[in-house]
Design a protein around this nucleic acid. Sequence first.
DNA 1: CCGAGACTTCGGTGACCGCCGAAGCGTCGT
DNA 2: ACGACGCTTCGGCGGTCACCGAAGTCTCGG
Lengths: 266, 266
Amino acid sequence: MSQPHPTSPSADGVIGPDLASLAGLLADRTRASMCLALLDGRAWTVTELARHAGVAPSTATGHLHQLVAGGLLSTERQGRHRYMRLAGSSTAEMIESLASHAPLRPVPVRSLADAHRRRALSYARTCYDHLAGNVAVAITDAMTERSLLTWDYGPSLSESGKAWLRDLGIDDHRPRGSRRAHVRTCLDWTERRQHLAGAVGAAFFQHGLDAGWLVRKGTTRVITVTDKGHAVLREQLGIPDTLGQEGVADAARASSPSTNARSPWG
Amino acid sequence: MSQPHPTSPSADGVIGPDLASLAGLLADRTRASMCLALLDGRAWTVTELARHAGVAPSTATGHLHQLVAGGLLSTERQGRHRYMRLAGSSTAEMIESLASHAPLRPVPVRSLADAHRRRALSYARTCYDHLAGNVAVAITDAMTERSLLTWDYGPSLSESGKAWLRDLGIDDHRPRGSRRAHVRTCLDWTERRQHLAGAVGAAFFQHGLDAGWLVRKGTTRVITVTDKGHAVLREQLGIPDTLGQEGVADAARASSPSTNARSPWG
DNA sequence: CCGAGACTTCGGTGACCGCCGAAGCGTCGT
DNA sequence: ACGACGCTTCGGCGGTCACCGAAGTCTCGG
């Protein structure tokens, strides 16, 4: 009755979770654009996000404060920059879940650089804390074909899958006592295909970086697969080196790190 | 530039998924309340939803049309009624995912009938297509203790778990070729505990109804466990009959099916 | 110490959107 | 056939909120 939300006077005390206020945070084009950008798992500055979303820095500040207050983002000051990142993996998963149900808007290609960047992104990129893109889908498919991953009772690792990861040196142990999903799939909006996510997906990705199979391309979310990485994918999973390989290096070179930071995907 | 959304003039063509428009559907108290109500998996009429949300029927009509247009709800005419239901299980899962991240609002108890109804709901109820409440949590815990359900690599059935379900006569086979998660957990906002969901959860619930372990209480989402059901839970999982049992029948009787349909949970 | 740059706060403006009641249309039950 | 009821459309009202630019604070680099 004395709630700060006078929307419906007679509907007081109706509810448990305040779904509307959470959804409201994502219901704005600008804020949604920022959250989707942050889905790459990196930390962005206020100005970067403002330019990405196409609004003035003052406007961006307001939006970001709302997102922090709502618990979706965490923030960290560093010198004269303020870095923003998603609050955690469960936040990222929630946004992904929403994004995969959202209608697609046409993505106009405006330049050759755009096309190249998109190709690179489409091949391999970060998706919060795991790998996405053609390569990620191919890995997931190959693991399924080899019965390392089974879908009969939801996505889960088979015994041979667990052993396979151990042999690769990937630590997939869950924190004891936690019940967070460790094998999860992520439905990507560009591929519309499932790929490996969750803690195992994150561990796989991290190990790929550590072992020199994968390399981050500058400050973008583009990932390149090294020769060593290609060898592993070929030998372990039968994935051909030629998968979407052409043009990747060009595209990554063509887009300098921060000029026109507006990326083709949210 | 000629987009119907003039919000940010220079931010045209930025994006893939239209997250904002989808979130916008849930960003309104009234629409959110309706969606949460529909999470019980049943079909509601326009007037029921209007009363539940505390708005005029004309207002409800507008909101429901938006939700249908956005693909969240499906609709079906039957005589002079129009029945609304969630579009599908994936829609329900998305809303759940959002709801479990939303802040909780206090739920005032206004009458004795409220208290009774809440107790009944807290014990056992439907949650879209599966069972929720104390009983569902107890089942999930017991399955875990007996190693029928493992969490090491995300929630999944163990071999003995698969066999156990088969012995009970529960058909848990996924539709061949589909990759939908069949073992999933649902974080309930009243319990804040995980319980079994996904296709296996739905199959378990359906079998419970078919086998006479469970009975729907009138047109509400309250579920009562029959004597037969209690016997199964006790013998198979060691769950005591006394779990939150008292007062359930009273509460269910006290609240006639459609008088004052406003329920304590959204 | 001083400018540049990153970020923030603060009015003021304009658009969007949810609310209702009244009136109209279809269906059901008597 | 006629009232009751469920649902819908329409017009008008009011509140909320995203936007910007200008001005202020803080940090870094020379």
